[in-house]
Design a protein around this nucleic acid. Structure first.
Lengths: 221, 221, 221, 221
DNA sequence: GATGAATGAGGATTCATTCAT
DNA sequence: CATGAATGAATCCTCATTCAT
């Protein structure tokens, strides 16, 4: 049976907490702040997707978000923090969704299918976010020291957990190193997404889910 | 039998010519220029791998190459050109090597094995080059308009050719779209390399060749 | 009677509008911006007069104006724009003054006298501005493509209008091509000014008005 | 009778010497050097006319003259020296021609006519030279300290001599300050030339000689 | 809280000049 | 004599960040 690794436990909890916060009753002032914060994040995603992170000026994000330059700094520590926040909040959502979908299924192979589906449909539904994720973040993970690779590792852990479970259940070859298998799976998904971004999205990313799953499960079987 | 696609023919020829040129008799002055050019490129790879492309100053490349700042501009049009040249010359070498190795083999599956081997050993033998390739270039392909994706497409074409050949020979499933298969293969290789770079190379990249081939060929079979 | 040519009408209007704007109630912030802008322009005139346009660094203008380097770029697009603005705003003032003085007089010969007077006293009252006008601008009109010769043409048109009026009134020879006469008049004024600048102003420029008028009117009579 | 002012005497002598030098028998090597020097000067005039002095690179002059960059420095001290030489040698020719033509005529008014003719036809026959003279040199006289204004003064002296002679002969008004008259004359000629250069030479400059003389002599009469 | 004017450090690039060949 | 590769000082401009209003 698949169990959430300890390192993921806090996530579910914290996300839950976050959710609660947004749903609880907020004063008008607080609601406006949260909305403005989100407007800035959305503006950042849009602008970074177009110009790249380094090519993006704080001024342009501010303009796109319809706030003053200085306002950005009331919500984020600096330009880097903007990117880090985009990454972390999106990963939180991804991981939470992944955990939830996995919990719904019993067959490990189905769980793997669900991950592939979620990954590609999640990125495929927001072109700008996909561009930021596939291009800008990869870059920053390498450059920025502060960049938490924790979230990424969490995501990998989920996939690994599913694969190990499938191996134990006899649905996938047991002789494979699970970590290598994770990389092949993630690599295939990642390349699908990157390619889709670079090719300017001539097709729907989620349509690539079925053939990808086909090859992967076959290869791992 | 695998045949070099027309679009690749010129490459082999031009590289051959280039090789001849470097081996032919050169004046002292010409030899020095070629050496200095290479010294600058090597310095650029080293510095870009460490600081990222945007984080790299021309002055630092010059200093690393032990030339004056202005000298860089005698050999390259601008900072971008440095990156583009690194990409194109490396790809030329990769593609030429790939074409050569493929020509040596008759079994399509062996050809695929050779590609995986070459890809991972090629990047695994030069850590800095790998970092530039996996991180900085991916980023620049997205941002820079001038970036020729031709070389990348050439490389993809080679892989695609091998896969189609294998399908025709009955060694791989014929029902798969070759282009999707190419992406899965390239994606897996790419992720292996990126992961190796981000994980700071705790292991030898070429050692990942065997298990990767295993999964891929199995999945495509 | 002298009538403002259509192409000049907008000028008078716009200058009027501009004047109104500066006199209307402005917030403190707006007033400061206008003052700072003018301080930069004055600094630029001073420094360019001393070192020439190419010999002038943006840093020196900033230092003279007691602002940061970057501040220059909040008010002007680039270094060229600084020179163009000096030219255009000064010409606007010149032309507006000219039009006003001409309107006050009825005798065409008097109008010509007024132009000569204004031209020489205008330049003679600000040594630095004169240097920029006689030396640096002449150069830039030739080099910079963006340089609007419109203002200069406007000024020429005013002189031409007066000369034609004088010819119609029988005060000046009617057999002369007005355009040639304009060049002789402007040439004389221009040379007076240039000479004064190059000779380091050993005399008052406006004192040259009377003898210049004498020769010109005599020659055109 | 017109007499060469003392300050001009040396000129005629030195020019004579120069002439002799070029006409005397020269070794092949010496002839080639002189030719190369002239090729560089001509190239400089052409390039400076197109790009302005500051916009001109030594490399471009060298390329236009079909010599190596370093060769320029075998013939001229530095970039400035190139411009100064163009000015001085051209002025020498102008002044020598002027002196010669004046000597041929007896009527002071005719002498003035000759000066105007020579000035405009001299500049009008070489567009590039005219551009350099009217635009670039004016600028450099102001900026460069090393710039000898002696030659210009010599030229002015010639015109002044003719005007004084004409006044003594009763052909021109005696009440005018000759120096002012010189400026008006030179100013008119100069403006004609500058205007011709800036207007991209839509007409022949020498055709402006007659109407200009008309106004000037009338005005001075 | 929000603004946006001001700052000034930082970096790519140019080009006159030199000098080894 | 001539070459042209190499130098490196010099400068325009950008933009993240601050802070007075």
């Amino acid at each position: 049976m698949f169990t959430i690794t300890p390192s993921l436990g806090y996530l579910v909890a914290s996300i839950g907490g976050f959710m609660d916060a947004t749903q609880s009753k907020l004063s008008n002032r607080e609601r406006k702040k949260i909305e403005k914060r989100q407007r800035i994040l959305d503006a950042a995603i849009k602008v970074i997707a177009k110009n790249g992170f380094q090519g993006t000026t704080v001024a342009e994000v501010a303009s796109e978000a319809q706030v003053a330059d200085g306002t950005i700094y009331l919500y984020f520590q600096n330009k880097d923090d903007l990117l880090i926040t985009i990454f972390e909040e999106t990963m939180d959502r991804f991981i939470a969704d992944g955990v939830k979908e996995i919990a719904k299924r019993t067959s490990p192979t189905d769980k793997l299918r669900a991950i592939v589906d979620l990954h590609l449909s999640g990125l495929g539904s927001n072109e700008d976010l996909a561009a930021v994720f596939q291009i800008e973040l990869r870059h920053s993970i390498h450059t920025m020291k502060q960049f938490s690779q924790t979230k990424l590792r969490d995501y990998f852990n989920i996939i690994e957990g599913v694969i190990e479970e499938a191996q134990r259940a006899g649905e996938l070859r047991a002789d494979l190193d699970p970590w290598t298998a994770v990389k092949v799976v993630f690599g295939a998904l990642d390349e699908m997404a990157t390619n889709w971004v670079l090719r300017k999205k001539e097709y729907a990313l989620k349509d690539m889910a079925a053939p990808t799953i086909d090859i992967l499960i076959n290869g791992l079987k």
